[in-house]
């Protein structure tokens, strides 16, 4: 993989008092986050805790309250935040006539994808794919990629415009243990070699413990945030993830029978 820039440590993204209410139901409230470039921030929580909603709110995809600021702490100047987003999956069914080139060119280019490929765009996409060792996939059909390959393609696309913030929904399907390991290794590489911050929705606490710099425990509001140690040792963490809870639930099922 290729290096571009080192994180400078001076950029920070502030999310102030973010809240989302949909159809009179409070999904997120009072979210305050402070994120530095060069850090991997993991968001954890149960299903329905509002993790995906938080990402969509940051992307401005749903109506929300509060602001998102992006500042250079060295000179205090506000800048426009560029976000790279990697969805968990995309709507590509079997036999869809979309190649990796078509996929990326549709998002990144204006020249119609139904015309012959342009050399410039082809080269640009190939370069981006090379960072994740996915350059051989450029003419493959997207629907035939494995989960890990698709992930690498989407990552290449997300960092093409050199974003300040990378938002990811951790892949859950189509990726095996080795793939996950590779995925987190890539995250680590990205945060060390690029000037960007990463917010990652994570479902795997073992990997979070190993790789995250900052952990946010979410359940409508932020229950606890801090280093891995701080969050994992907190009573709030216990309450959400405690095995005790699980057993109670299982016992209850058994009793119901």
């Amino acid at each position: 993989m290729r290096k571009i820039i080192k994180p400078c440590g001076f950029h920070c993204i502030k999310i102030n008092n973010l809240g989302v209410t949909l159809q009179n139901q409070v999904i997120l409230e009072n979210i305050n986050l402070h994120i530095h470039c060069g850090s991997l921030n993991a968001i954890i929580g149960k299903n329905g805790a509002g993790k995906s909603t938080l990402i969509r709110a940051i992307l401005d995809d749903i109506p929300h309250t509060g602001q998102i600021e992006f500042k250079d702490t060295k000179d205090g100047k506000m800048q426009k935040l560029k976000i790279g987003y990697v969805p968990q999956s995309i709507n590509i069914e079997k036999n869809t006539p979309v190649s990796v080139y078509d996929l990326i060119a549709s998002y990144k280019g204006r020249y119609p994808v139904f015309f012959p490929k342009t050399k410039k765009m082809y080269q640009k996409i190939k370069e981006a794919l090379t960072i994740f060792e996915a350059e051989d996939l450029i003419d493959k059909q997207v629907c035939n990629l494995s989960g890990g390959e698709l992930q690498r393609v989407l990552l290449s696309m997300a960092i093409m415009d050199k974003p300040n913030l990378l938002l990811l929904d951790e892949p859950v399907s189509g990726i095996d243990r080795n793939g996950m390991e590779l995925f987190y290794k890539t995250m680590e590489y990205l945060k060390n070699h690029y000037d960007l911050a990463i917010i990652l929705i994570s479902h795997d606490l073992d990997y979070v413990a190993e790789y995250a710099d900052h952990v946010v425990l979410l359940d409508t509001k932020i229950l606890k945030q801090g280093s891995v140690k701080e969050v994992f040792a907190s009573p709030e963490f216990d309450q959400v993830f405690s095995t005790g809870n699980k057993e109670n639930w299982m016992n209850k099922e058994e009793n119901d029978d």
Partner: peptide, 24 residues
């Protein structure tokens, strides 16, 4: 419309939120 909008339509079709994050 096809010349100027097809890429955007295709992007939206593949993933709406992703398209929006690209300013479409």
């Amino acid at each position: 419309f096809w010349l100027f909008g097809y890429n955007a339509l295709n992007a939206i079709c593949i993933h709406k939120t992703l398209a929006k994050s690209e300013g479409i």
